[in-house]
């Protein structure tokens, strides 16, 4: 099951375009992340795929068939809302059975058939023992699993998740992330999810589509987008990146001394002994950032930049990063872009 979006445009008012000419294609069975800051159009794009928003221009093809004019009801797409949108007056069982009961009369199932469909789904999402509870009596993570089972009950061609982990606390989030990835691998259902958390997208998805101001910046595997960002925006959005000022360019990035814009990630900055090659700087402060050590460095012109070194290296470099020591800086890897926007 593959979906293709061609030149999608959605405007709110004459000047505001939520999506502004997006073309992308999913691969059958893949888990695709739509990643971007708020206002980048990622949720609008997801809603357009579902048929909840209608495009001003462009087409949506599902398995090669034009689905642009189909209503949400006709598309048979599973959708999990950010706030889950569970039906409060219905039990967990009835929430999941909703889509089965909503079928047209000639396709309607018997009560026994409905049970045979709903109970295995509740087992899949580990909610079997809560079948008779109302949503109000469930935790956030449980509600989300019910919403997922409800979406899966209609045997969707495609599963869409809007900020699936947005409303959960950090621990539940991580657990659910792993669980969702396993579930996806087991079901093999093409899935698109929206997130603003780059870590989540890189960890979970097969491919990541990065959106900015309604445009697609890059589409690729987590390694591709992180290691070879297509645009300065992607480089900066997927973790920190320093825009190398022209006057430091030759010393910091000696192998590509000029042309375009060079960007360097903090963990790609190498600390060398003073007096040798590299940009001279003084260590001002160090701070622990989990497995890495953050080193705040003052350049000769008084500007400060940050480097990040792994904890193991930190021990070796101990003498070299004490506050007040002089060092030379050089970029191990730099990302180069043609035009500085």
């Amino acid at each position: 099951m593959a979906i293709r979006i061609e030149g999608a445009v959605k405007r709110y008012g004459p000047k505001v375009a939520a999506i502004d000419g997006v073309t992308l294609e999913t691969r059958p069975g893949e888990l695709l992340a739509l990643l971007g800051p708020s206002g980048s159009g990622k949720t609008t794009l997801l809603r357009a795929i579902a048929g909840l928003e209608f495009l001003d221009a462009g087409r949506i093809l599902i398995d090669g068939d034009d689905a642009t004019a189909l209503t949400a009801r006709e598309r048979r797409i599973g959708f999990v809302f950010q706030n889950y949108a569970l039906f409060r007056h219905l039990s967990v069982f009835e929430n999941v059975a909703f889509g089965l009961r909503a079928r047209p009369r000639r396709l309607r199932l018997t009560e026994a058939e409905i049970r045979d469909r709903v109970l295995p789904l509740l087992r899949t999402v580990q909610m079997e023992e809560y079948a008779e509870r109302k949503p109000a009596a469930l935790s956030g993570g449980q509600r989300q699993r019910v919403a997922l089972a409800r979406a899966l009950a209609i045997e969707p061609r495609l599963l869409l998740l809007d900020e699936p982990f947005g409303a959960l606390d950090a621990k539940v989030r991580r657990e659910l992330r792993r669980w969702l990835r396993e579930l996806h691998d087991r079901l093999g259902l093409s899935t698109v999810f929206v997130t603003h958390d780059q870590e989540e997208a890189l960890e979970l998805a097969d491919r990541v589509a990065i959106l900015n101001q309604g445009r697609l910046e890059q589409l690729g595997t987590p390694h591709e987008v992180y290691d070879s960002p297509a645009t300065p925006f992607v480089a900066e959005f997927l973790g920190d990146a320093l825009r190398v000022p022209p006057r430091l360019r030759r010393a910091l990035v000696p192998d590509r001394p000029h042309g375009g814009l060079a960007m360097v990630r903090p963990h790609d900055i190498e600390l060398l002994p003073p007096g040798g090659p590299g940009v001279p700087a003084i260590v001002r402060r160090t701070a622990s950032r989990g497995g890495a050590l953050l080193v705040e460095l003052e350049l000769e012109d008084g500007n400060r930049i940050e480097a990040e070194i792994a904890r193991g290296d930190a021990h070796e470099a101990e003498g070299r990063i004490a506050p007040g020591t002089r060092v030379g800086l050089r970029a191990r890897i730099a990302h180069l872009f043609d035009d500085a926007p």
Binding site: A72, R73, I77, F79, F87, F98, G99, A102, A151
Partner: peptide, 20 residues
């Protein structure tokens, strides 16, 4: 979203109104 969820699950307008 409740009405949208119902539509995505295949419910028509009347059914969405009555059941949701």
């Amino acid at each position: 979203e409740l009405e949208e969820a119902a539509a995505l699950l295949g419910a028509g307008r009347a059914s969405t109104f009555l059941r949701v």
